[in-house]
Amino acid sequence: MVITAKGKEILEIAEEPEYVMLAKVEDLKMDMLRIVEEEEIKKIRLKTSDEATFEVEPSILKEMKRVQSLINTEAIDTSVAIPLPNITSRNLSRIIDFCWEHQYNTENLEEFKGRFLKSLNHQELKELLLAANYLNIKTLFDFLCNSFTDLIQNESPEFIRDFFNILNDTNSVKSMHAPAFQGSIDDD
């Protein structure tokens, strides 16, 4: 956040004489360094619904947009753990795992994702999706959404009902049995 604000500043000062600009850019660099340094020290603690406390690195925290905005907007006392009432410790450790791998595992990320997915049953997958949504972690959210679509690929409506645990209420909608489609229009 701070950095984007500074980024704007660069644009605004672009019209000033060159020497002023250079000085400001130097300042900016120092600022940024300071921010990085500060963040390196600052580990934030998160408290899950089952009262477990996690110490999380700033680089991981950055992925959790919701927590990040909490830290940025409210003057939260970072010495106290931030409560996350919607998330269990089990899920939070999974999430941290995922974010960690996503950031640092460049070689066999796909392999990790495969393993990660295999370790989850449908219910856990759903819970994790809600957690990713709550914490606003885009990478995990996208990954889980795509996993859901993969799981219901080539399946029947009955399977999908079972999968999502939904009741069949379709008989009352007459128009639902519209003419057959011949196939999808594939994108170029």
Partner: peptide
Amino acid sequence: EILSRIKKTGDRNAVSLACKR
């Protein structure tokens, strides 16, 4: 979000027949 990622028409048809929502 989940639904918008389903591209194949066959899959979309199946999903749409699962329930009203």
